[in-house]
């Protein structure tokens, strides 16, 4: 393993540790203060994971990488809706989740059909 890679790996580990500590220890904003701290902190954690996914959408070379990241984004948002539904006690968040999963599946299949239509050239 080269020196540059090692430095990059330890930077990554450090940023992960900083992220976990920030999610666990920082005081919550008043908008996320529900009946317990656990749900607000898990929502913050999911927000961080969503930003990881968004960074792949920004940097990913080519359409296929971005489509893969968008697929994952669609599934993550269903989990987001589930946690919101527990925290606020409203049932219709799960309706949004089911509809979102369905729409994202249909959209991804359409995008992959479009990708398939292009020619394979070396």
């Amino acid at each position: 393993m080269s020196k540059f890679k090692r430095v990059r790996y330890y930077t990554g580990i450090l940023s992960v540790v900083i992220f976990v500590a920030a999610v666990l220890l920082l005081p919550l904003p008043s908008a996320l203060r529900w009946q317990s701290d656990f749900l607000g902190r898990s929502l913050l954690w999911l927000l961080g994971v969503l930003f990881l996914c968004l960074s792949r959408i920004l940097i990913g070379p080519g359409a296929a990488n971005r489509a893969a990241a968008i697929n994952m984004l669609g599934i993550l948002i269903v989990g987001f809706c589930a946690i919101l539904s527990i925290a606020t006690g409203r049932d219709w968040y799960m309706d949004i989740g089911i509809a979102w999963a369905l729409q994202s599946f249909i959209g991804i299949v359409a995008i992959s059909k479009y990708l398939e239509g292009k020619d394979f050239d070396e």
Partner: peptide, 27 residues
């Protein structure tokens, strides 16, 4: 609805993954 959503996600995620993989290979 959460139980229904589990079944739906477990059925559709592999399908979308191999649609995307096939599309990426073909493109």
């Amino acid at each position: 609805k959460a139980l229904l959503c589990i079944v739906f996600i477990a059925l559709t995620t592999p399908v979308s993954v191999h649609a995307l993989a096939k599309g990426a290979f073909r493109s």
